[in-house]
Amino acid sequence: MSRAWRAVRERALNVYAALAIAYLLLPIAVIAVFSFNDPEGKFNFTWQGFTLEHWTNAFSLPPLNDAFFLSLELAAASTLVATILGTLIAMALVRYQFFGRRPANFLIVVPMATPEVVIGAALLSMFLIYGLELGFATLFIAHVMFSISFVVVVVRSRLIGFDRALEEAARDLGATPLTTFRTVTLPLLTPAVLGASLLAFALSIDDFVISNFNAGESVTFPLFIYGAAQRGIPVEAYSIATILFLVTVVAMAFTVWQQRRAQQMASIRPEQEDEPYAGTPAMPPAPGAAGG
């Protein structure tokens, strides 16, 4: 009795963790499994038989391809711009004193807390007021807008812990301010910037609500799936979704690895007298974990 109880107690955390992971991954597993399904009719909801057909011909449906590549394009463009702008904003907020810095520091997180429906509707009415034609441009503006906050938050937290003496050391050793940024500041910020951009990418590629308001004639991947849901989602969409998921996992693993390296580098402390080889620090929360 007591031995059994102890065994349960020792494994309780493992069991709990396994259940939590299963809860998170089960819906995705369903998608992956059903990408191998061979449905009779239009609807891919019940298991009928195994086939590789929808993997070998994953990119055989032009409207689906168009939607998928539009989403990739949109995500790439908005990630690039949001990452650059967000990094610069974070630097300004952390490094410089200026009028309105404190309100700006607070307001930058407001878009994260605002319901997407509100943002989508607000952007739509703004675009209508200014007479912008809805399409890729409006989608791009909207995606940059909601990604920036996340980039700023991630990069800002890294900048706050940044040892300014490193930059002074570079200046002291003869580096101009620009060279200092290139050879010291940027390399040390890279893990955070990469993590932030991955997060922005994930947010953009799966956004539905805001895109739905501002897409006009354009059809992104999530919009296509939503539209197809009534007519029956083609199995190829399951395959592409699975590919997307796998790519994201790889990118996420890369980010976590980068973050770990950054943590190890940051763990240089003069006090670490007895432990030159400090153990691997606890895994930091991946910045991308919040997204997707």
Binding site: A165, E168, A169, A170, R171
Partner: peptide, 19 residues
């Protein structure tokens, strides 16, 4: 500016470049 001065500094925190 510091990068043009003929001085070099040893910092209290060492400030070695971790990367």
């Amino acid at each position: 500016p510091p990068h043009r001065r003929p001085t070099n500094t040893v910092f209290q925190s060492y400030a070695l470049f971790p990367h």
